[in-house]
Design a protein around this nucleic acid. Structure first.
Length: 592
RNA sequence: GGUUUCGUAGCUCAAUUGGAUAGAGCACCUGACUACGGAUCAGGAGGUUUGGGGUUCGAAUCCCUACGAGACCA
């Protein structure tokens, strides 16, 4: 039983005994820093039932706990807030529980499986900053869910077909001169992206030309020669034209090579990749099934719809009049495919909040169709990443390229580290590894510290900061503790729990308290799909340790019990930082 | 136009889901055992939580309204 559970139980008893009131679930909150105590119970809501003033209730419960609870040492009451302090023996027991539990913060398998889809790039351009938030969220959530007991399958749905792909293919056919990644020295995804941009440039000129020849803008957009050619290419592709398919395969192959380099660098991987080219025809049979069962209806123009007004949504097209699919058709098919492949208990999609409506519709349709997995589908909707200059617009060239960004971060990490000159004895491979750890630590932390649901601003100058609320701050705390542990080992000092009579320093109590919060943070992060909870926690833990470090002396304390205890505390803090950062996909350096 | 999300210190974000005098980091001032790693720590200043109403013991949080921003649907 956790301390919190014991406290709740004791408070419940005290309420029952003193006021003859059956208390429902007791809620405890951490005591604010300006007051003494660690756990606070708020008594206002009891006031009516107990027919006493909140402060009086606090006094009575507090006195009862002080006398009878096995864990409470003393208390104070401020207005309706009862603040509780624990016995030192309780703190030591609590720490011992943490210390002796190698699985601290990870939960046993719960028998549930979950599939999480994320990243899902288009193969017509390289990854950018927006993908990074998605990738880091997905990768981190997968780890958090695993730690909380789920069996996790990571998937990626690659958008590898469609008109946008044909655009870059067309531009390449027209202007490519057989250029390859090898001949140009460009990464494959960047090469494909280059032709996508070239298409857009030429296309715009063609539109302008047609307009100046007297055509309306709408018509010009539809009739520009390159647009017509791209659409023709799409038809050829759909009809399996050998040359077209060959070009498509060649260019996509380059892109995949480029993507895998990037994923590798940033530590992202998938258990299963789906390709839209293999799934885009799925779903039509589901439409047929739904029509027969009366879930969908056909309009005069032969298009198929569903009426979701009862769910507060609109009528939604699910199949065009000419029998071709829309996005939702494909998603119905792909979800069915996932289910038949894995039979997972839950399905998650990490997709930007611009698609909130799309997913509401998708899930509503799945429910109408009575799919067994319909109730366990979740859209992990995250906010867009803005720049100080405003939104990222690929057409306006304001996107932040992922590869460039990572390279810049690595360079900055190298510069900072060399300025400080603490690792001048490192081999160059060690140094390079460290720069990567710091660069990605900073970047991942920056993107994961904000509540995923919220839109966030990416300020390039702040993101490369290594001080304050950053990944490297936490990494630094870890490295410093590791240095202490090494020193302790050299001195032959072991990590040991002191005798029950040991009088704890306040900084030690705060450290144990902070440590004890970790498992519940893992669970909340999993329940709320919010890695930010782990980010905020690990930063707080690092701060508490740094305060402890500044306030007490570890090796110089005259009491040998204190020395060994503080080594033990340090060790567990370093391990917890390690675990927490791991959940964020961030590496820890031994020295920096 | 319809639907929807949001608005917190100069800037970037928190606030245990309705609880205490709204907290951190950055930036700005002031300080820290000459070695347990200063990429650190301690302190100062900085707020009518966009404005206005309401609900109650209590509101950044819930309801209404105005303004502002984003997204989606045509």
């Amino acid at each position: 039983m956790t301390i919190e559970a014991i406290l709740k139980e004791d408070i419940k008893k005290a309420i029952q005994k003193n006021f003859d009131v059956a208390a429902d679930d007791i809620i405890l909150q951490p005591t604010k820093k300006e007051f003494e105590g660690f756990y606070t119970f708020v008594t206002f809501s009891l006031s009516k039932a107990a027919r006493r003033a909140p402060a009086e209730i606090g006094q009575m419960i507090g006195a009862d706990l002080e006398a009878n609870s096995s864990v409470v040492s003393h208390f104070n009451v401020v207005q309706g807030f009862l603040n509780l302090s624990l016995k030192d023996t309780t703190w030591l027991e609590l720490f011992d529980d943490i210390q002796t539990n190698p699985a601290f913060g990870t939960f046993p398998e719960n028998g549930q499986s979950v599939m999480i889809e994320f990243s899902s790039p288009n193969t017509n351009k390289p990854l950018h900053l927006g993908h990074l938030r998605n990738d880091f969220l997905g990768e981190s959530l997968a780890k958090i869910l695993k730690a909380s007991g789920f069996d996790v399958v990571k998937t990626c749905l690659v958008n590898d077909r469609g008109i946008h792909i044909c655009k870059s293919m067309l531009a390449y056919k027209e202007l490519g001169n057989s250029e390859t990644p090898a001949s140009s020295g460009l990464k494959g995804d960047h090469l494909a992206g280059k032709y996508y941009v070239l298409f857009d440039k030429e296309y715009k000129q063609q539109i302008a030309q047609l307009i100046s020849d007297g055509m309306t803008e709408d018509l010009a957009k539809k009739n520009a020669p390159w647009m017509l050619a791209a659409q023709k290419l799409l038809l050829l592709w759909e009809n399996n034209d050998a040359d077209t398919v060959a070009l498509w395969k060649k260019m996509n192959g380059w892109v995949y090579e480029g993507f895998s380099q990037t994923y590798n660098k940033i530590g992202v991987s998938f258990d299963k990749t789906y390709y839209e080219s293999e799934t885009y025809l799925l779903g039509k049979n589901i439409i047929e099934e739904g029509l027969q069962r009366g879930v969908f209806f056909r309009k005069k123009d032969n298009s198929v719809w569903i009426d979701l007004t009862a769910e507060g949504l609109d009528e939604k097209l699910v199949l065009r009049g000419d029998g071709t699919s829309v996005y939702i058709t494909q998603d119905l098919g792909t979800t069915e495919l996932k289910f038949s492949d894995y039979h997972s208990n839950r399905y998650l999609w990490v997709v930007g909040n611009e698609q909130d409506y799309h997913f509401k519709v998708l899930f509503a349709i799945l429910k109408r169709l009575g799919r067994p997995y319909a109730e366990e589908c979740y859209h992990i909707s995250y906010g867009m990443v803005d720049l100080p200059s405003g939104k990222m617009k690929s057409r306006e060239g304001t996107v932040v390229d992922a590869d460039e960004l990572v390279d810049q971060m690595v360079q900055t990490a190298a510069d900072r580290t060399q300025e400080l000159g603490k690792i001048d004895d490192f081999e160059s491979t060690e140094a390079i590894k460290l720069y990567d750890q710091l660069a990605l630590g900073a970047l991942k932390y920056f993107l994961l510290k904000v509540d995923p649901k919220k839109r966030m601003l990416f300020n390039p100058e702040e993101s490369i900061d290594f001080q304050g609320h950053t990944g490297p701050f936490v990494q630094y705390t870890y490295a410093r503790i590791r240095s202490i542990i090494r020193k302790a080992e050299q001195a032959g000092l072991s990590a040991e729990l002191p005798s029950p009579a040991y009088k704890l320093h306040q900084a030690e109590r705060e450290l144990i308290f902070s440590l004890s919060l970790y498992p519940s943070k893992v669970l909340s992060a999993a329940n709320e799909f919010a890695p930010s909870l782990i980010s905020l926690y690990v930063f707080e833990l690092a701060k508490v340790y740094n305060q402890f470090y500044a306030e007490v002396s570890i090796f110089a304390d005259p009491n040998p019990e204190a020395v060994k205890f503080r080594i033990a505390l340090s060790k567990i803090v370093s391990e917890t930082i390690h675990k927490a950062l791991e959940l964020l996909g961030i590496d820890v350096p031994e020295r920096m």
